[in-house]
Design a protein around this nucleic acid. Structure first.
Lengths: 216, 216
DNA sequence: CCTACTTTGTGAATGAATTCACAAGCCTGC
DNA sequence: GCAGGCTTGTGAATTCATTCACAAAGTAGG
């Protein structure tokens, strides 16, 4: 009945949220392709899932479609943005100015989606002060005072595994509320800090497993 | 009874495999720290799970521990490697010599874990022929013939979203068996090709959702 | 206005993954 | 070699996620 994105009453599964993100990405393409309406079936086909799953995912947040017709692309796009909290800007700091860190700092997808990179940090004295894509690399030691002046909600962690936990502890005490971790370690964070990890080694090993144990 | 990694009889969940990978990474650290034996409890603590989960995960593949004592670190490490198919070398090609692609090509974790980067590809004429970390960037058009001469099992895809599917189709027809995708699109692959996707936009949006809808 | 056709939204049913709980096995000390 | 203390391995119970299936609601055409 309600086409407003109401605040979640029951716990929403992470898998659901990730699919919403996939739907949104496809919808943004649909808009530019000039499609004005879309069915759960079509959304499912391009999101690698089933139409029932699409409808169930959306149903957790309200009722966005018209029976017999499908979903209006602009309205659904807007609703998904609202659900995912993308109608505001988020300030992001990148910690670690190595290969991955600098690649990320230049990643176009940040800015275009409301994630502002406000600072890049490193511990290497040779890197501190140098400039990348408009960001001066700053000393990790100044994170706490910097965040006091100019708060950021999200940190992207791209440092070696052996210093990752120390960096996390520093970020957490400086008031960071979410961390996207690229270091191949399991990090400990307080319950009120959100954490996601991208672990290339894990993905490769999972592929290795699948290639090895393919049912045959 | 059997401490051999027997071939999987029932389908193993992806979540299980990913945890095995986490256990393995911690064990490799334990070895260097000189610890000779480890309990499921300790493994769980550092893997962000529970001891029952650890034991259940391992039980799918055999029986590796000693009751009352725990798991012998070197033996379990070896068994996990075997389970994950890491006792052999895998040849990897990287497609896309942009920011992410080059960062990945230089990623130390590849070589040290048995994943040999055998080639880097791009379509940009200005990049083709240039050299990065011992790899000459080659023309995507030569993938098929290259793979005929020197096969690779795994491709890492780091190209823009709009050309990703075309690259996948080419790789699949050239005989690639597994793809690790960094492009923010849902890719279509035949059932016998393994696919994992790392999607930064999705991770950030999932954090955004969590920050926005924190139960409060 | 009525019929035929679509597609959503959602309880109920199924299936999958995690947690519980405890018997079985191993080590240590006496 | 026996008692006491740990820790594994695993069915059973539970929790969580996906799929099914269909009533409800919309469109279109006559």
């Amino acid at each position: 009945m309600n086409s407003q994105a109401c605040s979640a009453v029951k716990r929403i599964a992470d898998s659901t949220v990730r699919r919403l993100s996939v739907y949104l990405r496809f919808l943004e393409g649909s808009t530019s392709r000039g499609q004005s309406t879309i069915s759960s079936e079509e959304l499912a086909k391009h999101g690698g899932t089933t139409s029932a799953q699409v409808r169930k995912d959306l149903s957790f947040f309200g009722s966005f479609g018209k029976r017999g017709l499908g979903y209006a692309v602009p309205e659904l796009t807007e609703s998904l943005r609202e659900i995912l909290g993308l109608q505001r800007q988020w300030n992001v700091v990148i910690v670690g100015a190595g290969k991955i860190g600098t690649a990320l700092a230049q990643y176009h997808g940040f800015k275009s989606r409301g994630f502002n990179v406000v600072a890049v940090y490193d511990t290497d004295a040779r890197k501190i002060g140098s400039k990348w894509e408009g960001h001066v690399v700053r000393d990790v030691a100044s994170i706490t005072s910097d965040l006091g002046e100019r708060p950021a909600e999200i940190a992207v962690l791209a440092v070696p595994a052996d210093v990752a936990q120390a960096a996390v502890d520093r970020l957490v005490s400086a008031g960071i509320r979410a961390i996207l971790n690229f270091a191949p370690v399991q990090l400990q964070v307080p319950g009120d800090v959100a954490l996601r990890s991208v672990n290339m080694a894990m993905e490769l090993e999972s592929l290795s497993f699948e290639l090895t144990n393919r049912d045959r």
